[in-house]
Every structure is written in C-alpha cells, then in structure tokens.
Design a protein around this nucleic acid. Structure first.
Lengths: 182, 182
DNA sequence: CATATAGTTCAAGGCGTTTTGAACTGCATG
DNA sequence: CATGCAGTTCAAAACGCCTTGAACTATATG
C-alpha cells in the first residue's frame, strides 16, 4: 500500500506491473524480512531484484520502490555486505547494476547469529555478575540468590531456544531452499 | 545504568540494595523480555516483584524503578492481563499490592503465539494471493510465477521455524522451568 | 582536464512507539 | 457527604529508528 504506486509510466518496460501483484509480493517479502529483524526496505529491494531476475540500476530501484537516492545506496550497501545482492558492471553502461543472490534465509541466519547471540550472551553475563555480587554480599538471603539463579535460567532458555530456531532454519528449512541454489 | 539510582533512602527496608546487583538483575530481565518483543519496563516490573518476593504497592514500584504513576498503572495492567502479576488486597491497607507469578516464559510463548502467527499467516496469504493473480494473468512468464512460489516458501519457512522456536520453549525449556512452579 | 553522471555520506526531519504528568474517577474513611 | 489517597486515562513530550535530500566524492567520457 505504500511506495510503488506512482502512476503507470507504461513505457518503462514490458514488465511494469499493471495489476499490483508484483508490489504485493515485494511488500510481503518486506514484511517477512522485517519480522526477522531487518529493515522492511532491505527485503523489498531484494525482492524486486529477485522477481525481475535481471540486474537493475540504483536509479531504477529508486523509481520502482519509491525510495530516495541515499536510501537506495545504503540499502544496497547492506545487502551487498550480506552477500545477497551482487554489483555487476555492464559493458556499454556507465553505472553499476545490481542483481539478487538467492540465499536470503542463509544470510538472515548468519546475521542473526552474529547479532542476537552477542546480545543475549551479554545479558546472561550481567545476570551471572549480579548473582555473584549477591553471593559475595553475605547479608543476602539464600532464597534471593536462588531467584537470581532462576532468572539466569530465563536468559539461558532464550539462548537455547534461539539456537534451536537457527539450527532449524539451517537444516529443515535449508534443505527446502536448495531449490533456490539450483 | 538508567533509573533505579536516586540516592540511598536507607530507611525504606533492609532490602534496599547498596551495591547495584539488584538493579543489574532487573535490567537484565528487562533486556531479555525486550528481546522477546515486549516492553523493557514490563520485564523490569516483573523482575522487581519476583526478586523481592513480596507484594509491593504501585507507589513502591514507581519509586524503585523510577517510573511515572501512569506508566506503572499501564505496565501492571498488561502484566495482570497476561497473568504474570497478581493483585492482592492486604488487610489494614487502603491500596492494592502486586506480586509476581512465576510463569514468565509461558506468557511470552502465549502472547507470541497470538501475535506473531497471525502476522506471518497474513504475509503468507498475501504472497499466495499475488501468485494467484500472476497465474491468472496469462502474460506472466512461468519462471516468474515460479519465483513467486519460492518466495512463498520463505514465508512458510519462517512460520515453520517460529513453530519450532515456540515448541522448544514449551518442552525443552518448559521442563527446565518447572522449578519455578514448584 | 572539464563535464556530467553515479554513488556516498550524514545532519535534519519524519514517524511510530513508549513514557510522562495532569486531570479525572473511584473508593474508603471520618 | 467531604476529604484524601489510589488508580486510570490520554494528550502531549520524549525517544529511537529510518528515510530524506543536499553537499560531497568518485568515475567515466569527450
């Protein structure tokens, strides 16, 4: 419903969607990717490139998704860094073109691993530290220390669940996604 | 580092922490809970009540966590609705007191189930709809429809992974957390 | 090397969410 | 039934994140 609907401009290409199904799919991917903790527009850019199945210029992406020049630059930088978009130089053309690599879930897993694990690990460390301090302080009741220990377990549980989450997306899902790589 | 450090007020109770370990633990729980998609301060309120192991008044919570009156009211409302905090009336006291129930992870799972599944389901529906439209439109290449189908698979994968995530936190973790209920 | 166009950077602005605080409601008590 | 305090509500402020757009840098071309 947002972006991607500023008039027909029918001349652009035979591919320009008349009915909104392309935009709908693009936005849907944007939403999935947002769920995984990335920016909506990162998902939309990837989806556009993937669906069109051809390398587009930054200017084209900007126009198709109704983003700003600077925004496209930054979004592409992220996607390149994660290896899900490739920058290619076409012969007679002065500007770069970008095309989608297909391992979107792989990258999600990788980035989440780096990002979230560090975060949860830090929390666990804080709780462990708090418990140690409480234990050292002789005046703290045993029961209270016990409760701190249980709270640590919450953080551990989160870490563990996250682990399973990622493992699943690696094998279960990963196998399923070999279609992409084929 | 934020909230919870406005001077000693040593008279309040023998429990008032001199060294920051209690605040540290409370903030850590706030961070875990935020990770699970709730408000940081919902976690902090729960953690305070759980750690103190006694029913506190709204005024006390307000003071201990340096929150506003209105904020405490709303936070408690949420926690009550989710069943992780109970409202109790003490005999000689005009005001309510609140105490922590111990099934924090249970509630996280329940709320996530309601909230996230609906969200992902909607996305999947959008993608399916987009594919149907594309299929109906005869001018769309087969390859493109195929790509739409693969994008649907991403959404399905997300749903599946989420499922495993929640199942894990139910059994694996759930078992571990029987200590809370004991 | 001058020019034009592509791409990058980042301060400022926009936007959605959370928190505040003041007005209000409700309840218990004298 | 008047008073005071506990609790609720909600508009406005604060906050954090994302995007914009203008200035800047890099690159290709004649």
């Amino acid at each position: 419903m947002k972006g991607y609907l500023w008039g027909p401009s029918a001349a652009t290409s035979a591919r320009t969607p008349q009915s909104g199904w392309e935009a709908m799919a693009i936005d849907a991917v944007g939403n999935v990717i947002e769920f995984w903790g990335f920016k909506r527009n990162q998902g939309r850019v990837w989806a556009l490139l993937y669906l069109r199945d051809q390398a587009l210029t930054a200017a084209e992406i900007e126009k198709e998704l109704d983003l700003s020049k600077g925004g496209v630059s930054m979004l592409i930088r992220d996607l390149e860094r994660w290896g899900v978009v490739l920058r290619v130089r076409t012969p007679g053309d002065a500007s770069w073109r970008y095309r989608a690599e297909t391992d979107l879930l792989q990258m999600a897993r990788r980035v989440i691993e780096e990002r979230e694990f560090a975060f949860i690990a830090r929390i666990r460390a804080d709780l462990a530290e708090a418990r140690k301090l409480a234990e050292a302080d002789g005046s703290v009741e045993r029961e209270k220390v016990e409760r701190l220990r249980k709270m640590e377990a919450v953080a551990e549980a989160t870490e563990k669940a996250l682990n399973v989450f990622l493992k699943t997306s690696r094998f279960d899902v990963g196998a399923m996604f070999d279609v992409f790589r084929a």
